[in-house]
Amino acid sequence: MSTTGFGISARQIISKIFVYLLLGIGSIVVLLPLQWMISTSLKPLSHVFRFPPEFWPQKVVWENYPNALNQLPFDLYFANTVFIVVLCLLGEIIVSSVVAYAFSRLRWRGRNVLFIVVLATMMLPRQVTLIPEFIVFRHLGMIDTFWPLILPSWFGNPFYIFLLRQYFLTHSRELDQAAVIDGCSRFGVFWRITLPMSKPVLGAVAIFSFQFHWNDFFRPLIFLLDQDKYTLALGLRFFQGTYGTEWNSLMAVSLVVMLPLIIVFFFAQKHFIQGVVFTGYK
């Protein structure tokens, strides 16, 4: 299909239209579930079970949102979730970047062996160690506290360590050496040079961490018992158990729980995509 001289061939135009058509249809299919969610969340309950279902709500009931959210201590669950997510995120960033620095910049005996051990733990699904972990936390008397959810994040995450190490390795050592000659300490180099130069990858780690802990359901389910300590994910599950068929309320609450992620996604989309690309490609 070489185009010499004038314009584009008819065949190319047709294939272009075909591509747009496919992508357009695909986009609609991808967005429909979300549209369905919004539309259901605004319907009165009597309209939810109309047959055939209405695609757009014929009567919009904004009150569904406050009504549904008042059914559960939403503020409390929101606060619990934010508390856990923020502490996990801080832990993962601080510890993983320090460890990654040691793996990429310092020379010490057994470094490579230990690095392979860290990588090997990445292959181990977390559920495999869950039961021993549960027993350990029980012995520590930490069941039904936030500790089992937060503490592991402060022991580094192999995936983030790997990501950060790879990124640190791309920096030149000359800058570090110059700083050391100027009297900068090891920690100074890490804090003033390595970290500021790694903003994109730190952003990616922060976003992954936020996304993971915000959505996490399995660990809170196992470690939290008292309803006052529930996270949003657990609260949502409880709400579903109680109001199982009030789909308009369920959709409203689910949407509110998703909203922070969607907002962060739109503002930090570049970091999201960059982060995914860092990890998956190469």
Binding site: V30, P33, L34, W36, M37, Q211, W214, N215, D216, F217, A233, L236, R237, Q240, L250, M251, S254, L255, V257, M258, L261, I262, F265, F272
Partner: peptide
């Protein structure tokens, strides 16, 4: 967009 959403809310949806 859907790839960033997961967990309980998506399951209920």
């Amino acid at each position: 967009l859907p790839a960033i959403l997961s967990g309980v809310a998506v399951a209920i949806l």
